[in-house]
Design a protein around this nucleic acid. Structure first.
Length: 549
RNA sequence: GCGCCCGUAGCUCAGGUGGAUAGAGCAGCAGCCUUCUAAGCUGUUGGUCGGAGGUUCGAGUCCUCCCGGGCGCACCA
């Protein structure tokens, strides 16, 4: 494989610049937004203006006069605007991308920028106190897609789910179930203050009674707690399964206590000298690390003497570090952004060489659901719920995933149920999948296996229509798009790309026929390439690429 | 009050880590449907990028302040 045109041009520009007497500089070769500005462009003359004490356009002219490019690469060079140099690639160059694309097949778009380094991606991490709601759905889609993007760019990824099964919310859950049990036994007992009211609590109470005939009175709070947590974990697993999300590792907060990791973390923090006692509690001096006030890490005796939540959180991240994850990414709801600083500060206070940006965070904003032009109200306290499984059942897994991925995570997201269900091209998932199905349809009608179509040996010179050249350029951008999306941890860049590619593909499909045309052989190559890239992009995001709709 | 995020066409949103005249879809307007899927297609109207300063050759993008919206600010998690 030869170097991509942008690299060749970059090197040639650097050489031309040194011929002009410029000391070594970074040469930027970018794709202009406006296609009339060529396929590639450089601002080199502008950045050299100061050093050479010369007008940018004059420098540009000398660069163009001095540059040496292999023949057949560039069809035209022009100087434009304040001093940009625009390069127009020869069409044969563009079409030349197809053989490598087909040869790579389902691996086209993969790269090795991660070099096999390990990365831990933690997401969902819901408390086992209720079913997974739509917010968790956004997180599941995001986390899974980010993990896949990292895999595609050469990272060794571990997907991890962390159960907060140790804190006060779990006690709260146990008391709520206990109250329901009492109600089932005919006693009038209120759900405790701040407790869980959902219908699922009653179901758990019923199942507990059926499974524990010896505790008909519901006196064994510990047994109730274990039972409820177990039941809800199974429930959440089923939700995630329906959504097609799998994890490599499940970590339990409770295990951090039984393993002594929490105690050990406290000891290390004390040893590092960033703690003090006040009002009967033990504090961590987080202000040493940029927090606006110090935080209690162990409550006073009259408050129970427990650790506050962030000590196990810190202990948990220590285990990630000690398990060899030099990189860790946490996907969380933005309502937890307060914990970001505290976890990082706790890790810094341990002074064990963990970098201060560890772990990285991807925070997502809230989700609201619209149906029939009205907001679907969700209230956890009142127990009115729209679970991730409800949503998947109603609109389908592909649409749910795609919708959660198509917007930047840090903007509030409105999930339009009617649009997601719509079988028209206004629906972006349908639009992209349809493009794949159309390409597949060509091969179905031709009664040919797409895999049997090869670019090597095929005469691609008949691919000369502007739509075809544009389509191939779009296909060639896929690997870089994957890399940029992975680097930014933004899957929405990929959905945006896929919609753009689908748009060009639909336009081409409508304007030109493939079968029975003189260009059939070459166009079959292009159709296979389009189908392949659409399939790769969709598969990466966990969405099906259907043969027909 | 303090911190984080958001503000781009009538609506929903892109905008590749500072580039050239701001980009899509929907809605609107004008045309078009005998084909491998019309479950549409083509063309077109529409913008003081919330506001004001600043940084520099160049700002939707970076910095400061202000306005508007969301989310946090516990010995809850």
């Amino acid at each position: 494989m030869t170097a991509p045109p942008s690299e060749t041009i970059r090197a040639a520009l650097a050489e031309a610049a040194s011929r002009l007497g410029a000391s070594t500089v970074d040469v930027a070769v970018e794709r202009p937004r406006d296609p009339t500005h060529g396929d590639l462009a450089t601002n080199l003359a502008l950045t050299l203006a100061k050093a050479l004490a010369e007008k940018p356009r004059a420098i540009a002219e000398r660069l163009v006069a001095n540059i040496q490019l292999p023949s057949g690469l560039v069809r035209k060079m022009e100087i434009a605007g304040p001093g940009f140099i625009n390069f127009f690639l020869a069409e044969a160059q563009v079409v030349g991308a197809l053989p490598a694309l087909l040869a790579a097949g389902s691996t086209y778009g993969r790269s090795d920028v991660g070099q096999g380094r390990p990365v831990n991606v933690e997401f969902v991490s819901a408390n086992p106190t209720g079913p997974l709601h739509v917010g968790h759905g956004r997180q599941a889609a995001l986390g899974d897609a980010i993990a896949s993007l990292l895999e595609w760019t050469g990272w060794r990824v571990s997907r991890e789910f962390y159960y907060n099964d140790g804190g006060g919310q779990i006690t709260n859950l146990a008391h709520s179930v206990q109250a329901r049990i009492a109600q089932l036994r005919g006693r009038t007992v209120a759900i405790p203050e701040g407790g869980y009211h959902g219908e699922y609590i009653r179901e758990i109470a019923e199942r507990y009674l059926a499974a524990h005939p010896k505790d008909a009175g519901g006196a064994d709070l510990d047994a109730i707690r274990r039972f409820a947590v177990e039941a809800l974990r199974e429930e959440q697993d089923r939700d995630l399964q329906a959504f097609g999300v799998r994890f490599d590792v499940y970590s339990l907060e409770s295990a951090l206590y039984t393993d002594g990791k929490v105690d050990e973390t406290e000891r290390r923090l004390v040893a590092a000298g960033h703690t003090y006692e006040k009002d009967g509690a033990r504090w961590l001096r987080t202000t040493d690390f940029g927090d606006d006030k110090d935080r209690v890490m162990r409550k006073s005796a009259e408050k129970g003497g427990d650790y506050t939540y962030f000590v196990p959180d810190v202990a948990y991240h220590v285990t990630k570090w000690e398990r060899g994850f030099t990189r860790a990414i946490n996907v969380q709801g933005a309502d937890h952004h307060g914990t970001v600083l505290r976890v990082r500060v706790g890790l810094q206070a341990l002074e064990m060489g963990i970098p201060d940006g560890y772990p990285e965070y991807v925070l997502h904003q809230m989700v609201t659901v619209m149906r029939g032009g009205e907001e679907v109200k969700i209230s956890k306290r009142a127990g009115s719920y729209l679970t991730i499984r409800d949503l998947v059942d109603e609109v389908g897994r592909d649409a749910v995933r795609y919708f959660f991925l198509m917007r930047k995570s840090d903007t509030h997201f409105v999930f339009d149920v009617d649009l997601a269900k719509s079988q028209t091209e206004e629906n972006p998932v349908f639009y992209v999948q349809m493009a794949h199905a159309r390409m597949s349809g060509i091969f179905r009608v031709a009664a040919r296996d797409p895999e049997s179509v090869q670019a090597i040996g095929a005469d691609l010179s008949s691919l000369t229509q502007p739509e075809e050249i544009e389509l191939i350029k779009e296909l060639a951008e896929f690997p870089e798009t994957v890399q940029r999306a992975a680097a930014a941890l933004e899957p929405n860049r990929l959905t945006t790309y896929l919609e753009g590619l689908a748009r060009v593909a639909h336009a081409w499909y409508h304007k030109y026929r493939v079968l029975g045309e003189p260009e059939e052989a070459a166009r079959l190559v292009l159709a296979r390439a389009v189908r392949q890239v659409l399939a790769n992009g969709l598969t990466l995001l966990g969405i099906r690429a259907p043969e027909r709709m």
